[in-house]
Design a protein around this nucleic acid. Structure first.
Length: 218
DNA sequence: TTTCAGTCCGGACTTACATCA
DNA sequence: AGTGATGTAAGTCCGGACTGA
């Protein structure tokens, strides 16, 4: 989607890291306890029992135990995700070995990570569209006010709001483009690169449907 | 060359569990 | 201590791509 304010790689910076979302700096006591629990899976015998868990589970369905990844495991997974959002079987296998997890667990982690990434992106798009809507609403209000004022004046020189400066332009500077039949102004020069850059940071970007540039003749 | 069944993989959705306020 | 909210690992279902017969 062209309206995205940043690339997906930028998005990654804003996505919370599993296990760090609610405790950015210092780990609370409960997290320490959580880490203790996670020490167990790192042992060889846990691996063995964990592997067995996957195959069995037929008789008297045992309660599902939730794996909590250690900080180090999360860090490595995140690092790997930054390099690649998907893994080929070889990468999956080696990462699983490195993390002392099952390949399936690595696969699931990547699936969920992609889902979270997409969700975050969707939320950002939603936020951006809300702002865009708000700015359009405000612009619409301004224009309607102006129409009312002009109607109240009954007669008066036509004024056009510059799309660049948002200031009313004197009618004497206006002319009609014969090709696209739009009103243009000699006083309405395009903004400088610096101004454009500043505007880009202050105002929402134009959605793809509205971002068409006027023809070269205009 | 085309068709079709089998397999694999990823996305979407959901569930279950752990943690926290 | 009980409870609702939240985060996340894992299960399930489905569709698309690929492959070999």
């Amino acid at each position: 989607m062209a309206v995205l304010p940043s690339s997906s790689s930028n998005l990654e910076l804003t996505i919370s890291v599993p296990g760090f979302a609610s405790s950015p700096v210092l780990l609370p006591l409960s997290s320490v306890k959580e880490l203790d629990i996670n020490q167990v899976p790192l042992e060889e015998d846990w691996m063995a029992s964990n592997m067995e868990d996957e195959e069995e589970g037929s008789n008297g369905d045992p309660p599902r135990k939730k794996l909590r990844l250690t900080k180090e495991q999360s860090r490595l997974l995140e690092e790997s995700f930054r390099q690649n959002h998907t893994l080929n079987p070889k990468q999956k296998e080696s990462l699983a070995m490195q993390l002392k997890l099952r390949p399936r667990q690595v696969e699931v982690w990547f699936q969920n990570r992609r889902a979270r990434s997409k969700l975050k992106q969707t939320e950002m798009e939603c936020e951006y569209l809300k702002r865009w809507f708000g700015s359009l609403t405000e612009q619409n209000r301004r224009l309607q006010r102006e129409v009312e004022e002009l109607r109240a004046m009954k007669v008066g020189p036509p004024t056009v709001i510059s799309p660049h400066s948002c200031e009313p332009l004197p009618a004497s500077t206006l002319s009609m483009c014969p090709r696209c039949e739009r009103v243009t102004s000699t006083a309405d020069k395009p903004p400088s690169a610096a101004a454009a850059a500043a505007a880009a940071t202050l105002s929402p970007k134009v959605p793809p449907t509205q971002s068409r540039q006027p023809s070269a003749a205009c």
